[in-house]
Design a protein around this nucleic acid. Structure first.
Length: 260
DNA sequence: GTGAATGTTCATTC
DNA sequence: GGAATGAACATTCA
């Protein structure tokens, strides 16, 4: 599930409900999601403290621990199935829960591909961020142009590479390329500046609308709304959609709108 | 039982 | 050195 818009939604959940409130308890139901920290360490770092204003870069969510003199930051990554929920109800896939007066915040994740880290100082945080390209919701057209022009790769895997631009996942990239009428197999080396300009403006639109919905909205007018239908037709031209694998990921495109 | 799933990382092989 | 590929991680669901 989680790409940039989803994680931005989780950021809002944390910001709206938990920031500034005393963390009364940290329950670890499954330590399989803890990375580089154990349950006792996490409890000790967080209990009695609170979260400061959370921020996001790409698909990572950073929750600074207050008071700031502690210099610690909780780093969350949601893998393919994670989420952050403000809910009183315990769910079978809740792996960690933070308890506050008046509610609880659950890190819920089916597959446990990623999870929670605790950075003890700003260096550890910048270490994580330094491996990422500019945030997709924040990057300028010039930056994107430059990042892509350095590569000679198929455009889809290039855009999904978090060190090129951070935050785009499988669904978003398919959606953006479809709107920009760029075939996912095309090489970044062959993109004209006008292609990148198109790509950029489509990316902005898709991100803005997806962030508002806290997900890639499964609308029938979007490619995303049709990709799971094996006999799906392009919402724009009606051609049967093509399906394949690219960079190891399932890929959907329109052979008419997105010629090679 | 099999394969696939909106992610990342590592090893291997061009 | 880059780029492409496949496996691995853990788990459920169709």
């Amino acid at each position: 599930m989680p790409e940039l818009p989803d994680v931005e939604g989780f950021r809002r959940v944390l910001a709206d409900h938990a920031v500034g409130r005393r963390i009364r308890d940290v329950e670890v139901f499954d330590s399989g999601v803890l990375r580089g920290v154990n349950a006792a360490g996490l409890r000790q770092a967080l209990c009695g403290r609170s979260f400061g204003e959370p921020w996001r870069h790409g698909k990572y969510l950073f929750a600074p621990v207050a008071p700031r003199k502690d210099q610690a930051t909780l780093i969350l990554h949601f893998g393919m199935t994670g989420s952050l929920q403000w809910t009183a109800e315990r769910h079978r896939f809740d792996r960690v829960a933070f308890t506050f007066r008046g509610g609880r915040l659950a890190y819920r994740d089916l597959r446990k591909l990623h999870g929670l880290r605790l950075a003890h100082d700003p260096q550890e945080v910048s270490q994580v961020v330094s491996r990422l390209g500019p945030d997709a919701a924040d990057v300028s057209r010039e930056e994107l142009q430059q990042a892509l022009s350095r590569l000679r790769r198929q455009v889809k895997p290039a855009l999904m590479d978090q060190s090129v631009v951070a935050g785009l996942g499988n669904l978003l990239v398919d959606e953006i390329l479809w709107r920009a009428r760029i075939n996912p197999h095309r090489s970044t080396a062959d993109l004209r500046p006008s292609d990148v300009a198109d790509l950029y403006s489509r990316m902005r639109t898709v991100l803005r609308q997806s962030i508002a919905a806290a997900r890639v909205p499964p609308r029938k007018t979007w490619l995303t709304g049709r990709r799971d239908d094996p006999s799906g037709a392009c919402p724009r031209c009606g051609s049967p959609l093509s399906h394949g694998r690219l960079g190891g990921r399932s890929t959907t495109w329109c052979p008419t709108c997105q010629p090679r």
